Amino acid sequence: MAEFATIARPYAKALFGLAQEKNQIESWLGGLKELASVVQQEKVAAFIEQPEKSASEKVEALAGLVGLSNPNLKNFVSVLAEQKRLQILPEVYAQFQDLTLALNHTKRAVIYSAYPLSDAQLKDLTADLQKRFGTNLEAVTKVDPELIGGVKVEIGDQVLDLSLQGKLNALYTAMTN
């Protein structure tokens, strides 16, 4: 996956620059989201990996599946198809989304908790994290029962582990060293 991130970065930056120039960031973000989700489907992934299909056939199939009418996005998909890199579309979408958030001085936070958080808990936790990290956050929650209790937060390359599992691991490390 790290390889996909490296490959996708220049494509995402170029597409973002063009979207910004045309003042269509939000609409292109939506189109990329649809493309990314379609490419992750098993049958579509198998189709785009077929070497006997031409790049234009793959582009037309993807455009037809998502109803892609934006000529710039279609050209972008065509470039990816010609370079045999359609499988990086989900990573391009993720990086495009990060660039959009950065433009709005916002970062994406992934909050892992052992149990689902209520709306009030999420709101309070997000407010505390915004104060701690000094930035606006767009929070996404994921349930991870292995945490046992507490939360683990990932913001970019920073990880804040306040989980019971993390504390147990730290205690184990301290006792064995």
Rank of each mutant, 00 (worst) to 15 (best):
residue 2 A to R: 15
residue 3 E to C: 02
residue 5 A to E: 15
residue 6 T to I: 14
residue 6 T to L: 14
residue 10 P to D: 02
residue 13 K to I: 12
residue 17 G to K: 03
residue 17 G to P: 08
residue 19 A to W: 03
residue 19 A to Y: 00
residue 19 A to M: 04
residue 22 K to Y: 00
residue 22 K to T: 04
residue 26 E to D: 15
residue 26 E to H: 00
residue 27 S to C: 01
residue 31 G to E: 13
residue 33 K to E: 14
residue 35 L to I: 03
residue 35 L to R: 06
residue 36 A to L: 01
residue 39 V to E: 05
residue 41 Q to A: 03
residue 41 Q to D: 03
residue 42 E to S: 12
residue 44 V to W: 11
residue 44 V to A: 09
residue 45 A to D: 12
residue 46 A to N: 11
residue 50 Q to T: 09
residue 53 K to C: 11
residue 53 K to Y: 14
residue 54 S to P: 06
residue 57 E to W: 02
residue 61 A to G: 06
residue 61 A to F: 15
residue 64 G to Q: 06
residue 66 V to P: 04
residue 71 P to G: 02
residue 77 V to D: 01
residue 77 V to I: 12
residue 78 S to V: 07
residue 78 S to M: 12
residue 80 L to M: 12
residue 82 E to S: 04
residue 82 E to P: 00
residue 83 Q to F: 07
residue 83 Q to D: 13
residue 84 K to I: 10
residue 85 R to D: 08
residue 87 Q to P: 09
residue 88 I to T: 05
residue 88 I to R: 05
residue 89 L to Q: 10
residue 89 L to A: 06
residue 93 Y to S: 08
residue 94 A to R: 09
residue 98 D to N: 14
residue 99 L to M: 09
residue 100 T to F: 11
residue 101 L to V: 04
residue 101 L to C: 07
residue 103 L to Q: 15
residue 106 T to A: 05
residue 108 R to N: 04
residue 112 Y to R: 05
residue 114 A to V: 08
residue 114 A to L: 11
residue 115 Y to V: 05
residue 116 P to E: 04
residue 120 A to I: 05
residue 122 L to Q: 01
residue 124 D to P: 06
residue 124 D to R: 09
residue 125 L to N: 06
residue 126 T to A: 08
residue 126 T to C: 03
residue 130 Q to N: 11
residue 131 K to L: 11
residue 132 R to N: 09
residue 133 F to H: 11
residue 133 F to A: 07
residue 136 N to R: 11
residue 141 T to V: 01
residue 143 V to R: 07
residue 145 P to Q: 10
residue 147 L to Y: 02
residue 148 I to K: 11
residue 149 G to L: 03
residue 151 V to G: 05
residue 152 K to S: 10
residue 153 V to A: 10
residue 153 V to H: 09
residue 154 E to V: 06
residue 155 I to W: 04
residue 156 G to Q: 13
residue 158 Q to Y: 12
residue 158 Q to A: 12
residue 158 Q to H: 14
residue 159 V to A: 11
residue 163 S to Y: 04
residue 167 K to W: 06
residue 168 L to R: 14
residue 168 L to F: 15
residue 169 N to G: 14
residue 170 A to I: 05
residue 170 A to Q: 15
residue 171 L to Q: 10
residue 173 T to N: 14
